Simulated assay, not measured.
Amino acid sequence: MQQLQFESSWDKQIAPQDRENIEKIFKETKDLNSSSVVFSPIREAINHRDALLVSVLVHNFTEHPLTLIDAKLHYSVNNEVIAEKDFTLPDLVIPSQVSMPWTFIFPKDSYSVQNAFKSGRLELR
């Protein structure tokens, strides 16, 4: 059975309203019929350094812990890939059957400037 967990820094710093939103997304998506890794969108934003921030709920529906080492992630809007980057996050380990929120940061040179970043999809390639 899928469980929601927060990485320790998230758990300490997350605003109550954001926690409620993530718990709602988890309840709506925890029973997806999948045996892989699925990203459920939380929010997108551009920060003060013009980096694209993509916050998602990472569902590890697999039977193995998920680590992101040289993992190529694509972010697409309306089926057009607008950002891609290889991520190596050795400290991020998502156990089997666990969902965890995370924000992936695409630096300014790794994405195409768009009018809107909403309704996008993050995929592991």
Rank of each mutant, 00 (worst) to 15 (best):
S9V: 08
S9P: 00
S9F: 06
D11R: 11
K12F: 09
Q13S: 14
Q13L: 14
P16V: 04
Q17F: 08
D18W: 06
R19T: 00
E20G: 00
E20V: 00
N21W: 10
E23H: 04
K24G: 04
I25D: 11
F26I: 08
K27N: 11
K27G: 00
K27R: 14
K27S: 15
E28N: 09
T29Q: 01
K30T: 00
K30R: 12
D31G: 10
L32C: 00
L32I: 13
N33P: 02
S35V: 03
S35C: 03
V38C: 04
V38Y: 04
F39W: 01
P41H: 01
I46M: 13
N47V: 01
N47W: 13
R49I: 02
D50R: 12
A51R: 05
A51M: 02
A51G: 01
V54R: 06
L57P: 05
V58P: 04
T62D: 11
E63D: 15
E63N: 15
H64N: 14
P65K: 09
L66K: 00
T67A: 09
I69Q: 15
D70N: 15
D70T: 13
L73G: 01
H74N: 15
Y75Q: 11
S76H: 02
S76C: 07
N78R: 10
N78T: 00
N79P: 04
N79S: 09
E80N: 15
E80R: 15
V81Y: 07
I82N: 04
A83V: 02
A83W: 05
A83M: 02
E84V: 09
K85P: 02
K85I: 04
K85F: 07
K85M: 13
D86N: 13
F87C: 09
F87R: 12
T88M: 13
T88S: 14
T88H: 12
P90G: 00
P90E: 10
P90M: 10
D91S: 15
D91C: 03
L92Q: 04
L92V: 10
L92C: 07
V93A: 09
V93N: 11
I94Y: 08
I94N: 03
S96K: 15
Q97I: 04
S99R: 05
S99V: 03
S99G: 08
M100L: 13
P101Q: 03
P101W: 03
W102S: 06
W102V: 07
T103K: 10
T103R: 06
F104G: 07
F104K: 00
I105N: 05
F106Q: 03
K108I: 02
S110D: 08
Y111K: 06
V113S: 08
Q114A: 07
A116K: 02
K118T: 12
G120K: 02
G120A: 06
R121T: 10
L122A: 00
L122M: 14
L122N: 00
L122I: 04
L124P: 02
L124A: 02
R125A: 13
